[in-house]
Design a protein around this nucleic acid. Structure first.
Length: 260
DNA sequence: ATATAGGGTGGTGTCTACCG
DNA sequence: CGGTAGACACCACCCTATAT
């Protein structure tokens, strides 16, 4: 579920952002960046800059997932706690964090440009069960994206024998149409090339294996556990950043009480 | 088994009205 | 002024049917 949220950015930020990241990758990369990479500035003067309002601004909406918004709110809280320490009455908001995020992500992709995402459709025969499980864990429209990320970031190749890989289930197969990027396709081809030609391992075999591994991963993933891990991660980040021993103890106590 | 074609749709960016 | 909400057009992507 994505929510449309507007942000007040510095004038020109959007133009730069759009320049470094090609269309149709923008919000996708932004969401990933916020969840997995972005960290609050460690440098005090830069942190203080989060309380400044831009001289010239522009309003721009992004469609973000609840997960991303939650992360943003946590960051806002953190910065505001810091603001209190400075005896400042000023508060920060999602927008000021977003301005900093935009700076960082523009910086990142200026250094490591991304090319346009070329993709192709790949109809794959899967069992009804596989299809239903995917739909159970993933929003219909995100199956391709989740699978693609999984392949590029985690998938290391089949962990089963060639026979097992090529074994056809007795039940009738259904077609699952996925669209994955050329990068992901290339990666899968590389895996195929590691097999002997006479094994006749095809793209579909590897894709089905990747789907199986993804399903296994999703089944083991307990949403509550994941949320807890995320919170723990944020708490640790907070501890690392600007805390004295007393504050560490206080934070830990807060963490424990929140647990109940 | 896999690739492609064509049509529908919902995510996306943009604009505008509005709220506190 | 900072932010939200809704309407809307576009087109990337998804799905189904069909071809290779």
């Amino acid at each position: 579920m994505k929510i449309l949220v507007s942000f007040v950015l510095r004038k020109g930020q959007i133009e730069r952002f759009n320049k470094v990241i090609p269309e149709h990758l923008r919000t996708r990369l932004l969401r990933k960046f916020i969840l997995n990479e972005y960290e609050l500035p460690k440098d005090e003067s830069e942190l203080v800059s989060l309380f400044l309002e831009p001289e010239e601004s522009e309003v721009y909406p992004f469609r973000l997932s609840e997960e991303v918004l939650e992360r943003l709110d946590i960051l806002v809280d953190k910065v505001n706690n810091y603001g209190e320490k400075l005896a400042s009455q000023k508060t920060t908001n999602r927008s000021s964090i977003m301005r900093n995020i935009m700076d960082r992500i523009i910086e990142k992709y200026e250094k490591n440009p991304v090319s346009e995402r070329k993709w192709k459709m790949k109809p794959v025969h899967v069992t009804k069960e596989q299809k239903e499980l995917l739909q159970k864990y993933i929003d219909q429209r995100e199956i391709s994206a989740v699978l693609e990320d999984f392949i590029l970031e985690e998938y290391k190749g089949p962990s089963v024998s060639v026979q097992e890989l090529k074994r056809r289930p007795k039940e009738k197969m259904e077609i699952l149409v996925i669209t994955i990027s050329d990068d992901a396709t290339e990666y899968l081809k590389k895996i195929i090339s590691q097999y002997r030609a006479e094994d006749k391992v095809k793209m579909a075999h590897i894709l089905r294996d990747a789907i199986n591994q993804l399903i296994k991963k999703l089944e083991n993933e307990n949403p509550q556990k994941k949320a807890l891990e995320l919170r723990l991660k944020h708490t640790i980040e907070e501890l690392m950043q600007y805390s004295t021993i007393e504050e560490v103890q206080e934070l830990l106590e807060n963490y424990n009480t929140k647990e109940e």
